[in-house]
Design a protein around this nucleic acid. Structure first.
Lengths: 168, 168
DNA sequence: TCCGGCGATGTAATAAGATAACGCCATGAC
DNA sequence: GTCATGGCGTTATCTTATTACATCGCCGGA
C-alpha cells in the first residue's frame, strides 16, 4: 500500500472502467442524498466514503483507517473510522459485507437495498445485485414462518467471470 | 452463565420442545455421519458439538470456550475450540452465522446445505431454512453474471413469531 | 452577545474474535 | 518397534470492534 500514496489518483483497478468516475458519482449522490435528508456529510465522513469507494473490493475498517491516517498525515483512532462507517451504513451509502468484516460502497443509495452481493474469492471484488426474485423468495419464506424481516443479507461467495477465465 | 453449571441438564430453552432430544439427535446423526465418512468425531469435537447444540441460538466461539473450560474444570485455549469448530463446519455439522460471528448446529447434516437462516434479533434464535426458491434464484442470477457459486450465504435478520407476539 | 445543548470528533483503554508457530502425544500402518 | 499422521496443548499475536470519557464547534434562544 505504501507504493501508492494517493490511491484515488492511480490507474483504474483493472476493472475495465474509469473508476475515478465511480468515485465522483458516488460522492455526488452522497452529497445529494444527505442534503435531501438533512444529514451531515462532514469532511471526515466524505473522506471515509471516498476511501471505501477506492475500489470495488470490500475494505476492512482498519485498511480504511490506514489510508485515512496517511492522508491526514497523523494517526487516527479506529473509532473515528467506525463512527464514520456507522453513519454511512445507516444512510445506505455503504454496505457491510458480513462474511468479510468489510465495507463497500453502495451502488444505488436511496433506492431499496436488500444487500445482495456476489463476492469473488479470487480477486476480492464484490458486485452488488438486487434481484427481485431473491427478495421475493426471502419475503415469501419469511411470511410462511411468520417471520418479520428487518434486514436480509445475501452474500454469495464464488468466482467471478474474469477470474474463471484466468484460471480455467 | 455461572448460574447454570450444567447447561445441557437444564430445562428446554423456552422453545416449546424437548431440547434434550434435539441434542441427542444431533449427536447421533453426527456419529453416524462421521462413521460413514471415516472422520474422527473425537471426544473433544463431540463435546463442542454438544455445546453448540445447547440452544437454537448461534453461540460465539468464546462462549463455547467458556462452557468447555467449565466442563473440563480447566482453562482451555481458544484454538482448541476453533479447531473443533473448523472440523464440524467442514463436515457440515455446524454452520457459521457470518453476521453474528457465531456458530449453530446444522439441522440436516449430510443433506444439501445452502446455509439459509432466519435470525431473530430479539430472542437470538436462528432457524435454518433451505428454500429451493432462494437457492434457485441465487443460482439463476449467478449464472446471469457468469458467476460460479461456491458458498451462498443467506442470513435474514428480523423478528420471529414468538417475539412479535410478546411485543406487539 | 452570551449561553446551553447537541452532535461530531479526539483519546485511551480494552473487549471480542481469530490465527500463527511450535511441539508433544496417541493411534494405526508397516 | 518404528515411523508417519493427525489431534491436541501452549504461547503469543493479530484483527476487528466497542466502551468510557473529554473536547470542540455549530446553532438556536434568552
Amino acid at each position: 500500500m505504501t507504493a501508492n500514496p494517493h490511491p484515488t489518483a492511480g490507474p483504474p483497478p483493472a476493472h475495465g472502467h474509469d473508476h475515478a468516475h465511480c468515485i465522483a458519482d458516488a460522492l455526488m449522490r452522497a452529497d445529494a442524498l444527505c442534503a435531501e435528508r438533512g444529514a451531515r456529510l462532514t469532511a471526515l465522513r466524505r473522506q471515509v466514503l471516498e476511501l471505501v469507494w477506492n475500489s470495488h473490493k470490500p475494505r476492512g475498517a482498519y485498511a480504511i483507517l490506514e489510508d485515512l491516517s496517511q492522508r491526514e498525515g497523523k494517526a487516527t483512532a479506529p473509532l473515528t473510522v467506525y463512527r464514520a462507517l456507522e453513519f454511512l451504513v445507516e444512510h445506505g451509502l455503504v454496505h457491510r459485507i458480513e462474511s468479510l468484516n468489510a465495507y463497500i460502497g453502495c451502488a444505488a443509495p436511496g433506492a431499496v437495498h436488500s444487500g445482495q452481493f456476489l463476492v469473488c474469492e479470487t480477486c476480492g471484488n464484490a458486485v452488488e445485485i438486487d434481484d427481485p426474485r431473491i427478495r421475493a423468495a426471502i419475503g415469501t419464506i419469511a411470511a410462511e414462518h411468520g417471520f418479520q424481516v428487518s434486514r436480509p443479507t445475501v452474500e454469495v461467495r464464488g468466482t467471478c467471470t474474469d477470474c474463471q477465465e484466468k484460471t480455467p
